[in-house]
């Protein structure tokens, strides 16, 4: 298996080694290793049920791995408290339960939780962080709206804002572009790429849409049946043979007219 970047391994924002996770007798991740440097956007791809969500849950401390270790900026995540983990990594979950009566701003302010003690109220810095996060995700004008009144796409962007307001060096996104129209899909991933470049954040994004992932991520990791089957540049990972093997589908890999990155097209109805 190809290991990620070999430079500055000690300061990797995320370093997972030999992660094995099981729900009861069912092993959903086996021996997964990946490493992510600050400033990099890593795409996590793979078919349904390949273990993308479980990997994010394991890194964020929601499920305990059966074997292996997770290091967040060098610290052993299994030894950190929930709050210490939440100061290092923020998560945009897939289809989370959200209380409908809270406003979008209140939900984004919840991203400030790890920065606040039990009795502390949100201060100016917390409101500022939330405002910046909401402006960056184009949700500031939704601030006063109740969560229950938002569309699926608006809710998704508010969740991204909540994760940004958490101000962590590592972001874990589980299908951040689901529910979004093509415009907001591209805008969200472009925002992630910009955060990596300008703020040095490390982003791990599980993305269903391979073409979309290929346009914004410098590197892709492909999971299949709980294992890493490929890692590298989009061109290296998204080969027709591998796609046939992993997805069981015949896909044509074209080159993007401007960037040369892979664009996938299915066979279509050839009669």
């Amino acid at each position: 298996m190809v290991r990620g970047s070999t430079v500055e391994k000690a300061t990797a924002a995320l370093d997972a080694r030999g992660l094995t996770v099981a729900y009861g007798p069912r092993v959903v991740l086996s021996d997964v290793s990946l490493s992510l440097q600050p400033g990099r956007l890593l795409g996590l791809v793979g078919p349904n049920g390949s273990g993308k969500t479980t990997l994010i849950r394991a890194i964020s401390g929601v499920v305990a791995p059966r074997a292996g270790e997770v290091r967040l900026a060098g610290d052993d995540a299994l030894r950190l408290s929930a709050r210490e983990v939440a100061l290092r990594t923020a998560v945009v979950p897939q289809n989370p339960h959200l209380p409908p009566a809270f406003t979008a701003l209140e939900l984004v302010l919840m991203g400030r939780t790890p920065h606040l003690g039990l009795l502390a109220a949100e201060g100016r810095a917390d409101v500022e962080a939330s405002r910046r996060a909401m402006q960056a995700t184009d949700t500031w004008e939704l601030a006063g709206r109740r969560i229950g009144e938002l569309s699926g796409g608006e809710r998704q962007r508010v969740l991204v804002a909540r994760a940004l307001a958490q101000e962590t060096p590592l972001l874990l996104l589980d299908e951040p572009t689901a529910h979004l129209d093509v415009g907001h899909q591209a805008a969200t991933l472009r925002l992630m790429a910009r955060l990596c470049r300008s703020e040095g954040k490390a982003v791990l994004a599980a993305i269903h849409d391979l073409t979309l992932a290929a346009q914004f991520c410098d590197r892709l990791v492909m999971l299949h049946q709980g294992r890493v089957v490929a890692e590298g540049s989009p061109m290296e990972v998204l080969t027709p043979d591998r796609l046939r093997e992993v997805y069981g589908a015949t896909l044509h890999v074209l080159a993007h007219p401007l960037t040369g990155r892979p664009v996938l097209a299915p066979d279509g109805d050839t009669g």
């Binding site: 408290s81 998560v91 989370p96 339960h97």
Partner: peptide, 16 residues
């Protein structure tokens, strides 16, 4: 308030 999300989100926001 944070617990009124689900448990998974509460943990990811730093609450046990």
């Amino acid at each position: 308030n944070v617990l009124s999300l689900d448990e998974e989100q509460a943990r990811q926001l730093g609450i046990n």
